[in-house]
């Protein structure tokens, strides 16, 4: 296994938000400001890296039948740690993220990486995978947050970009969140050369193929 590719695949090619469309709920909810995106991304990356490492270490001790509850317990432990840290050191960010901080526990990205990667690979690869996926998530959130903040509030990371600009409130609203989200997904599809091919309809051509267990078995979607 190529460790460098394990790390970089999460940035664009298998970006958890923009290609696999996981973790959409926090992506849409907290990205009204770029700073919130950064905070949410950092907290999720921390939880993702730690839970990937711990699950990878414990993968031979967790019985297959109860693996999901076990993963959730491990993830929830780290989420509790992060939320206490934020509450004591960054109370403003803690307020801004609100309930979505606790909801990192049920973020599909973390459970997805635990199930698909960390429980099958060694510690070093799991660490790099968690870091890459977490950075990909963070970059996506900062990008969406920055676009929405500049257009919707006329500021960038809290700094005003000038009085000449009239903020377009639509981009701060949930509808604007979906709109920017869709545009960024389209951009990433262009960047990753994803083409809709009529010949290759099946699991192998799906952008999630490498993340999805079914594709490896060679199954073809009906």
């Amino acid at each position: 296994m190529n460790y460098f590719r394990t790390f970089t695949k999460g940035l664009i090619k298998e970006n958890p938000v923009l290609v696999m469309l996981l973790g959409t709920c926090p992506t849409l909810a907290v990205t009204t400001l770029a700073m919130n995106g950064l905070g949410m991304g950092a907290a999720t990356t921390f939880v993702l890296v730690c839970s990937n490492v711990v699950i990878s270490l414990l993968k031979n001790f967790i019985p297959k039948q109860v693996r999901l509850p076990s993963f959730i317990v491990i993830i929830a432990g780290f989420v509790t740690f992060v939320s206490f840290m934020l509450r004591s050191n960054f109370p403003e960010l803690y307020e801004a993220l609100g309930v979505f901080l606790s909801l990192i526990t049920v973020n599909c990205i973390i459970l997805g990486r635990a199930e698909m990667f960390a429980s099958k690979n060694n510690v070093c690869a799991s660490f790099l995978d968690g870091l890459g996926m977490g950075l990909g998530f963070t970059l996506a959130l900062i990008l969406i947050g920055a676009i929405r903040e500049v257009l919707g509030s006329g500021t960038f990371f809290g700094l005003s970009i000038g009085d000449w600009f009239q903020p377009i409130g639509f981009f701060s609203s949930p509808a604007g969140g979906f709109f920017v989200f869709g545009c960024v997904i389209a951009l990433v599809n262009v960047l990753s050369n994803y083409k809709m091919s009529s010949k290759k309809i099946g699991c192998a051509s799906c952008p999630n193929a490498s993340a999805c267990g079914q594709a490896e078995k060679g199954e073809v979607a009906e």
């Binding site: 409130g169 639509f170 509808a175």
Partner: peptide, 8 residues
Amino acid sequence: IILLASFG
């Protein structure tokens, strides 16, 4: 509607 939501 977009204009109304943006520039009330």
